[in-house]
Design a protein around this nucleic acid. Structure first.
Lengths: 245, 245
DNA sequence: GCCCATTTGTGCGTATGTATT
DNA sequence: CAATACATACGCACAAATGGG
């Protein structure tokens, strides 16, 4: 077994895994250039010149970064720094949940994380919520009740409620994370049959209980209301999956 | 074949382009064929034939799926179904944290999520932990103390402690999620200067307090110990970032 | 409205690296 | 070691989209 140098003298030394190296180089370029979301990146031609690789390699690297929402590619216009959002997590988790053949357990895991997060967060946000925020939350509950009476589902209102609830924390990541889990959960649920809420008025009441507890500054009651809320979702989930299986 | 309506500009562009469609087709192929992690995928030639697109399009789509850990590409061997792990989240969050120019706030957000999660989880796991698990945790603490006395840092032991702690929950997602946040946090910290723990014995003691409280089946004390643990990390973080800024 | 330059998207051919048999 | 199968990389040509004159 000879340890001869792998690269002939006449050829430029090319690292293995050029694709991965190019991705790293582009990420480093963004960091070094202090570029923020929305800022334009060099064109593919400039990148292949700057990095000394072919256009295909540049494009494949950009495709990988696009999947991570690190870059954003606009056809016929240019490449830009992405938002680095949590959409890759949503895509990955939805696929993962759909691919594992026992959806019930996978959905239960997601649900438990949401529950732990929201139960802990509501305690932290309870004192930070002012009257205007509480009014806005109550308004959302009213619109939920309205939609429920009209027989319309209200996933957007539910989502908005939870997002608004934790806004005072100023933690943008936790909002996006909860949104991501919410997306995965409802997307997987949509891929199966159980989109209809069997008892909307119950769901509305649980949300109203949360607001009431918060208005009374009763942290423990708010936590209990949130736990009840998730117990309701859980019951819905096991009933649906049992019905399917 | 239905003609898709024009989407508003807000939608991510990759969902309506051919490249995105090829990604979706490959994902659907995996789901329809009931393939699991590690199973082989059709070769590039077969994919371009099956989907009616060129090799470049297939490769770019695969590169995107590889970034999401949905497929795994082995040079010269073949493409396989990936683990759908949370590595994309790690990559995305590390980049996001490094790209936002105020690392302190971004790290604080991650830390708060870890804290909320672990504080809620330890309550749920407290009753499920048996004597063997507690012994294993205590053993880890002993090895931490040993490493601390020898002046060696012990990030792996810290990581193992928290992973072992929540194993009885049987929630694989939460373990991976905590691991992902841990990775991001320490990777970003490594990209700056503050890798050294100023007071290892303090860190060891906080872990020991957690085990002690768990052994006494004192849930409230365990939660307090966990909160103290994170208070320590927080203090370390603000001190380091203040020193840098 | 049309044309045109720029930029990304797609397809094809070819050579090379890598792992299995 | 040779043959085979496959991914990796490069280069070129053309199509499609966008924005501006």
């Amino acid at each position: 077994m000879s340890e001869e140098p792998r690269f002939p003298a006449g050829l430029p030394a090319r690292d293995r895994r050029v694709g991965g190296q190019v991705q790293g180089a582009i990420k480093q370029l963004i960091l070094d250039s202090r570029l923020g979301p929305g800022d334009p990146l060099p064109t593919e031609a400039e990148l292949m010149d700057a990095l000394g690789v072919s256009r295909n390699s540049v494009r494949e690297a950009l495709k990988g970064l696009q999947a991570l929402d690190i870059v954003e590619i606009r056809h016929g216009y240019g490449t830009y720094v992405g938002q680095a959002s949590l959409t890759p997590l949503v895509d990955g988790l939805t696929f993962r949940t759909l691919a594992r053949h026992e959806d019930a357990h996978a959905l239960g895991e997601i649900l438990q994380i949401r529950e732990v997060l929201e139960e802990g967060l509501i305690r932290r946000v309870a004192t930070a919520l002012g009257e205007p925020e509480l009014d806005a939350l109550e308004d959302l509950v009213e619109r939920m009740a309205e939609a429920g009476r009209a027989g319309r589902p209200f996933p957007e209102l539910d989502r908005a409620f939870h997002e608004l609830l934790y806004r005072p924390l100023g933690n943008t990541l936790v909002a996006q994370l909860l949104g991501a889990f919410w997306n995965v959960f409802h997307r997987v649920a949509l891929a199966q049959d159980w989109t209809e809420d069997p008892s909307p008025e119950r769901t509305v009441r649980r949300h109203r209980d949360i607001v009431t507890a918060l208005r009374a500054r009763d942290v423990a009651a708010a936590q209990r209301a949130m736990a009840d809320h998730f117990r309701g979702i859980e019951a819905r989930a096991v009933r649906a999956t049992r019905g399917v299986g």
